[in-house]
Amino acid sequence: MNKSFTQTFTVSGNNFSDAGKISTEIKMILKQLGINSDIVRRVAIASYESEMNVVMYACKAKIVLDVDPEVIKIIVEDEGPGIPDIELTMKEGYSTATPEMRELGFGAGMGLPNIKKNSDEFTIKSDVGKGTRLEIIVYIN
């Protein structure tokens, strides 16, 4: 028997009105599983920031949540412009957000650093012109 619970979500770029829906759903799943609230919060921040990056910078993405008794894994795979310089992009404060996005309170350049900070393992890969793939792992214990 497969020990993990898996659910796939899709996000489309520019869809600001649905922004945050997926991280809300992920949180509901974790709360039903009785996951400790500190962990829920860390996953919430990481998934929300990745979801928002898709909305702001990519065309669309598939988000896969996988929870087994030990770890929570979230894979965000988008089709979009990709990231040319990952090291630069990971720096706190680095952002290419437009003034309009900043008006909405985004674009502090803290998204990726916060995703990394809130995960126990984090990998980011990108193909310029194709898309970006994040893998976020949070340990349950």
Partner: peptide
């Protein structure tokens, strides 16, 4: 103090199976 909703099961492995059943 928090009074969180009861999880599907106190044991996480069982909770995962129950969530799958629920879906």
């Amino acid at each position: 103090s928090p009074s969180p909703i009861e999880p599907l099961d106190k044991d996480i492995s069982k909770a995962i199976q129950k969530l799958k059943q629920k879906q």
